[in-house]
Design a binder for these strands. Structure first.
Lengths: 193, 193
DNA sequence: ACCTGAACACCGTTCAAGT
DNA sequence: ACCTGAACACCGTTCAAGT
């Protein structure tokens, strides 16, 4: 049969397409292979296993959608970093779950750490504290976005019980919780002044 | 063959055992069935699908390990609730991931909301804010515990690169990040006085 | 460098039928 | 009430071999 012949980048691009169209559960090696008109085993020429493929997909999503944070005071930048990351994750079907998993596994998505960490550079906090803040914010963003996206998909498929949707809207909920964390950071920064 | 005949509770108990011994990836319907000396299809008499089984397992874990928070000022209680939840999740193999997933899907683990929420009852915060705080703390605990547990299993299996382990220890990291959030809450409570 | 063919060892779920 | 038997439609991964 006509050997289609792809490069690693083609495979990642198609994987992003499959993810965004059909969801993470349908992003299987076999499904991806068939979309590329190739046998499943061919994928193992490009990636040692599925985890590495997913890591590459997560990195690609972030590369495409995560914008650098603009200048300003540290608290505005920290808030913008968290908000921008959330929007970036929500921009892709199952983006939050994918990036959070890859990040937790330590195979990719390392750029999100920097994305948040750089906003604290002129906060006056020491490095250990900056790391704690960075991780706390990341856990919050990942947790909130994953729950939001999971909840949405659970509602769209299957029984969508209204009344369970927060009267606020998830965006305002997110902002309010984030402000809580930023205030906690501010309490530490102000003791340095 | 000798029909073994189990009740729903037996199935859940065995599932907890399989989870804690072999991990979430090995908690399959087929594996569980074989441990119970039963055909896979028999499980569908007790649970409509795997999601519901997992929800029951998550509830069972929490039932067995999550202790109520002792009396005291609201901030000490909030801290204790979060710390107790973290310890409860870490007490079981893949406990954090399982409970977080079930919770996000809304099929179980609802008791964790109350576990945290009750500590805020005499904080003076209004209900909307108490909900924000509760969710923020839950996201933080789930995120931190899942990352910690995933990282541990990634390190135990496969390449364990040292130097990547935080110089603090995960417990102190957790405590420091939690204090951040609690300080953020305190900033709101103090404006009420 | 990239792919096929064929296999291995698995999954979740359904459903008619048995006791 | 609880289980079997048999099937359906899938998984990830390996590996020798082809071009």
């Amino acid at each position: 049969m006509a050997a289609v012949r792809h490069r690693r980048g083609d495979v990642v691009a198609k994987a992003v397409e499959v993810l965004d169209t059909y969801g993470l559960a349908d992003l299987t090696m076999r499904r991806l292979a068939s979309e590329l008109d190739v046998r499943p085993s061919a994928l193992y020429h490009h990636f040692t296993n599925k985890q590495y493929l997913l890591a590459a997909v997560a990195d690609e999503l972030l590369e495409r959608s995560l914008k650098p944070v603009e200048d300003g005071p540290w608290d505005a930048r920290l808030t913008a970093a968290a908000t921008g990351l959330r929007e970036s994750l929500l921009a892709w079907r199952d983006g939050a779950e994918l990036v959070a998993t890859v990040h937790a596994f330590g195979l990719g998505a390392e750029k999100v750490d920097d994305h948040v960490a750089v906003t604290l550079e002129d906060s006056g906090l020491n490095e250990a504290l900056r790391r704690v803040v960075t991780r706390t914010v990341l856990h919050y963003v990942f947790g909130h976005a994953t729950a939001e996206q999971t909840h949405l998909q659970a509602a769209s498929a299957g029984a969508l019980e209204s009344g369970d949707d927060m009267s606020w809207g998830a965006g305002q909920e997110f902002t309010a919780g984030l402000a809580l964390v930023v205030d906690g950071v501010r309490a530490r920064v102000s003791t340095l002044a």
